Amino acid sequence: MGNKPGSFAWGVLANRHPALIQQVRAAFPYSRRQHEALDDLLDEITNGAVEPLDPEDHDHEHWADSGREHFGRSWYDAPFLWAESYFYRRLLGTVGYFGNGPWQGVDPFAPFKQAELCGEAVEEELRALDALADAPADERATALLHASLWGNRADLGFRVSAGDAAASEAAASALVADDSAVLWQLLPAGHSSTVAVVADNAGRELIPDLILIDLLLEHRHAERVVLHVKPYPYYVSDAMTADVVDCLRRLTQAPGEAGRIGGRLWRAMATGSLEVRTHLFFCALMPYEEMPEDLREEFAGATLTIMKGDLNYRRLVGDRLWSATVSFAARTAYFPGAVAALRTLKSDVIVGLDQATLDALERSGAAWRTSGTHALIQVRR
């Protein structure tokens, strides 16, 4: 819930969401009507009660059903995952994303994603790939797995492979769980594996995911990779098909190893060894335990499903304040096949820690659950 002042959930509702409204407002030359709608939403989330969608909205029935107990009450008194998800749905509505007007389908978060792709940080990380090109296969695999894990800190993974002792120590101490050996056991080279990757963020975080996919295909850890993305903007930086294309273009236009990787991925999409898919459920607020049958069959056909990022983790294990030592395998027993979580910690939810690790983290006094300074690789066969 978000009604405990000072908690992570409270901070998102009280600070992050109002700030995001202002950022979206400044990013586009919206009309007077859109500005007024943004003002109304800002006032509602800060001072008012949760209001339902317009009955004419295409998904009114879905949200009316899930929000029946929350409409008319404070945003802070709704379950955090529901409140977050509904906020983004309302934000898209205020700028006309789903309407029949000229702003239909215009991603309000696109400027943030594109600015990140053009930034110096991405440039440096792509240059770092040149040093990895001739690294031993196991070092390269470790580096690219860690780069995908850390996303916006992908350079940490690259530096580990380059023999940076300080980076190696930092990476080891920052992992609260590491089942990477099990992950590679499930994907031995030379087997006709199918890997499903459920993407999280676009931009700087999606590029390392694509580079890891190239490794899986190029070194025959997978014969085929299916990359699952969102069907429309969901949380602020979630990846859609357009973002995959933008990242591929960024790679193909880069010199050196990055450009070669981009070229291989572009060809992989043309030949079908890399396929991009989407499903409305990826923008739903339900946990994966309630996934529809067609998506369950999709994941059942994969040798391994890799879930990227914090939101996917929350939906995978259930968005509750579990005891951190609850078994990851037990919480994902429902999943129709082997599943791996690659996640930088940015929210309170976590399971699968051993008691000694948990005790050490708690003694540190750091905000290790939410600060993005720690990460995990958890796998259930």
Rank of each mutant, 00 (worst) to 15 (best):
Y86T: 09
D138P: 00
S168H: 05
V122P: 02
S168K: 02
A83N: 04
A143I: 02
S66P: 00
A137M: 11
G119N: 07
G119Y: 07
V95F: 01
G67D: 03
P136V: 06
H70L: 12
A131E: 11
L145S: 11
R73S: 14
A128M: 15
S74N: 03
L117T: 02
G93Q: 12
Y97M: 05
A162T: 13
A121D: 11
A172Y: 03
V95T: 02
W75S: 08
P102D: 15
A110Q: 06
L92G: 06
N152M: 02
D134S: 09
V95Q: 01
P79F: 05
Q104Y: 10
P111F: 01
D134Q: 09
W82H: 06
A167H: 04
A174Q: 04
S173T: 10
V160K: 00
R68S: 12
Y97I: 02
E120G: 05
A137Y: 01
R159M: 02
S148W: 01
G67R: 04
F112C: 08
A172D: 08
N100E: 15
W103Y: 11
A110T: 02
V95G: 00
S66A: 13
D134H: 02
S148R: 06
H70A: 14
L129R: 00
S66I: 14
P102T: 13
Y86R: 04
L81I: 07
A162E: 15
D164C: 09
D164L: 07
L81M: 15
R68E: 15
R153E: 10
A147F: 00
L149M: 03
R89Y: 07
R68V: 09
F71I: 14
L132R: 04
A64K: 14
A78I: 05
R89I: 01
S148E: 07
L145M: 08
G93W: 10
D164T: 10
G101I: 02
S173D: 11
A154W: 03
Y76N: 06
A121N: 09
W63H: 04
A83P: 03
P102N: 15
E124G: 12
W150P: 00
E84A: 09
L92K: 05
G163S: 06
T142C: 13
F112N: 11
W63L: 05
A154Q: 09
R73M: 10
A78M: 03
A135R: 14
A64W: 06
Q104I: 01
F109G: 03
P108G: 10
D77H: 05
A154D: 02
L92M: 15
F87N: 07
N152K: 07
G163V: 08
L126Q: 06
A128I: 08
A143T: 09
L129N: 01
G72S: 09
A64C: 10
V160M: 06
A137P: 08
E120Q: 14
E124I: 10
F80T: 01
A166P: 05
V106A: 12
V160Q: 01
R127C: 10
L81S: 09
A128W: 11
W103H: 14
A171S: 14
Y97E: 09
H70S: 15
W82V: 04
P136C: 08
H62C: 03
D155L: 14
F98Q: 07
Y88I: 02
T94Y: 08
Y86P: 00
A110V: 00
E125C: 12
S148F: 04
L117R: 06
A171K: 05
F109Q: 01
H146F: 07
